[in-house]
Design a protein around this nucleic acid. Sequence first.
DNA 1: TGTAATATTGCAACCTTGTCGCAATAAAAG
DNA 2: CTTTTATTGCGACAAGGTTGCAATATTACA
Lengths: 134, 134
Amino acid sequence: MKRRTTSSKTEILEVLKSSGNAMSHEMIQTELHRKVDRATIYRVLNQFCEDGKVHKIVGDDGKQYFAFCMNCGEKKHVHSHKHLHFRCLECGKVECLESELSLPLPSGYIGKVHNLLVSGYCRECGSEEGNNFS
Amino acid sequence: MKRRTTSSKTEILEVLKSSGNAMSHEMIQTELHRKVDRATIYRVLNQFCEDGKVHKIVGDDGKQYFAFCMNCGEKKHVHSHKHLHFRCLECGKVECLESELSLPLPSGYIGKVHNLLVSGYCRECGSEEGNNFS
DNA sequence: TGTAATATTGCAACCTTGTCGCAATAAAAG
DNA sequence: CTTTTATTGCGACAAGGTTGCAATATTACA
């Protein structure tokens, strides 16, 4: 299966890049100028994942989020997205945090995929008037 | 809403306790002797979560898993399940790991819920003949 | 440039997970 | 034993994601 360059792919990647955050299929759809089918968006995103252009994180809301990931997208250590993610319960933003964590597994265990997410309130949403989360 | 003790509740909690792992609704259902409705299982599990008897972790498969959590279930620091989880891609087991991690958030960020999961191959599945994961 | 091969798209259909409303049932209090 | 009301089972539903298929668009190659 040789890949072909299409406008869907370039536009979706562009949206992810310029956003800088991890985005759900829905977020991407609303950012696209053209109307692109749901199935197509997923197919494109899964291709990007395979190719290591993008990585996926599953939220505690059960949804899939995809990120171009400024921190590690350029580097070549594809498929080792061992960093923490943060999802804001207020504004919905999902971002990659820089922190490279060490995750001690029991001996004999082999870790393949990392899904590390904290949800809560980001700086903007946590400091808003009226909000009093702790 | 005062809670009532029912056989569904006691049996489901018993299954979770004796398993020791985090279980999906489906895993629980197959362990129950009696037939209990899917909706009931979810309602019971969500009650347990509210009461701090059990905690929930969302897998990178998008499914919800519930654990009695031997490590912290007895202690009183309810709702602070900041530990790592491991899901085996081969046998499906989901377990709570002991490790208490420190998760550095950017300043101003407020973490509420932790969903920390590594998936891969557990000791038994990783060492089986024929398997050559790396 | 024109044509064939095939990757991609849109659409509809489908599956799974999880939730909800409602009537029937069962636990608890008196 | 009766009343109150939490719980259950059933069916229906919504959302997220995947798949099959025919139509379309890219690419390679003559």
